[in-house]
């Protein structure tokens, strides 16, 4: 029983990362119908930016601020800088292609290539040595019986839920959210309605990449070893989670992320850890087989 609770807490934390990244995938997909394959690498860049910000700008080798101040300034700074990376990609790589009306898949390939550039560019620039993320927060462990919870885990889980609530609010309750949903319905009619499509798209990238930055920072705090390929696998998996939830739907990405987290942690609890990917993906495939549009997805009605 206690082992179960412990696993649930671990799964919540692990799922939080998937959910945060899946939200970025789903936001961009929902608006542009573009699988932004570079998103996992934006998450990785976010982690590195968090590292740079908290060591070289605010931390020991920069301003030398105390830890609480690094955290307070580092989180928004990381999010803004990572959002900048995402927007840059959209401006220099995706937008020109969209303007030319290139086939959708070519934009997807471009995204895939941008991901590779980020990954390997990072490797080439910073070298293969792993970076150790500084400990910004004194670790507090609360134990209930045999179940232990660290303050960091709580923060990660709370951050994921807060992000979900925030994005859900933006998409469903605000004018810009309405514009985002409108763009996803019809890209041709929207400019005629006086909605600046490009600004809406940039805003989408700001949101998605910003929260990937947050995920990167939290991930670096939880697992303080950084390496350039950390984003690839987790990114692919988060994308799969987003699709299983029903891509294009915020709730779907959130639920899908946690679902994947739970499946992985539970598989590891009962099987050798090498079976994790095999069983997790088999379960996800099964879900897609039964419900091809994902948990929250709605089949688009085909008209003839």
């Amino acid at each position: 029983m206690e082992a179960l609770f412990q696993n649930i807490i671990n799964a919540l934390q692990w799922g939080s990362f998937y959910a945060l990244i899946a939200l970025g995938y789903t936001l961009v997909y929902g608006v542009l119908l573009l699988i932004n394959f570079a998103h996992g690498d934006i998450f990785m860049v976010g982690a590195y930016i968090a590292f740079g910000v908290s060591v070289f700008v605010l931390g020991t080798q920069g301003l030398g601020l105390p830890n609480w101040a690094i955290l307070a300034c580092g989180v928004p700074l990381t999010m803004i800088l990572t959002a900048g990376v995402g927007v840059t990609l959209e401006r220099i790589a995706y937008r020109p292609l969209r303007r030319k009306g290139a086939h959708r898949l070519y934009v997807v390939i471009t995204a895939l290539m941008c991901g590779l550039i980020l990954e390997n560019g990072n490797l080439a620039l910073l070298g293969a040595s792993r970076k150790k993320f500084p400990e910004l927060m004194e670790k507090a462990v609360w134990t209930f019986g045999n179940v232990s919870v660290t303050n960091l885990k709580v923060i990660v889980i709370v951050a994921a839920f807060a992000t979900f609530a925030f994005l859900n609010f933006i998409v469903t309750r605000t004018r810009i959210g309405m514009a985002m949903r409108a763009v996803s319905y019809d890209k041709f009619a929207i400019p005629l309605m006086g909605i600046p499509v490009d600004s809406v798209i940039v805003f989408t990238f700001v949101l998605g990449s910003g929260f990937a930055g947050l995920a990167g920072m939290l991930f670096a705090m939880s697992y303080p070893i950084l390496e350039p390929y950390m984003g690839a696998l987790i990114g692919w998996k988060a994308f799969i989670a987003a699709v299983v939830g029903g891509i294009g739907d915020i709730r779907g990405a959130f639920v899908g992320g946690f679902l994947l987290g739970f499946i992985e942690i539970l598989v590891v609890a009962f099987f050798p850890s090498t079976f994790r990917d095999l069983i997790a993906f088999s379960i996800l495939l099964l879900i897609l087989w039964i419900k091809p549009t994902g948990l929250f997805g709605v089949a688009r009605h085909q008209k003839i």
Partner: peptide, 13 residues
């Protein structure tokens, strides 16, 4: 895109 994800998953599997 749903098929894309299935193929990626099959690759991992």
């Amino acid at each position: 895109d749903y098929l894309a994800i299935i193929t990626i998953a099959v690759n991992y599997m």
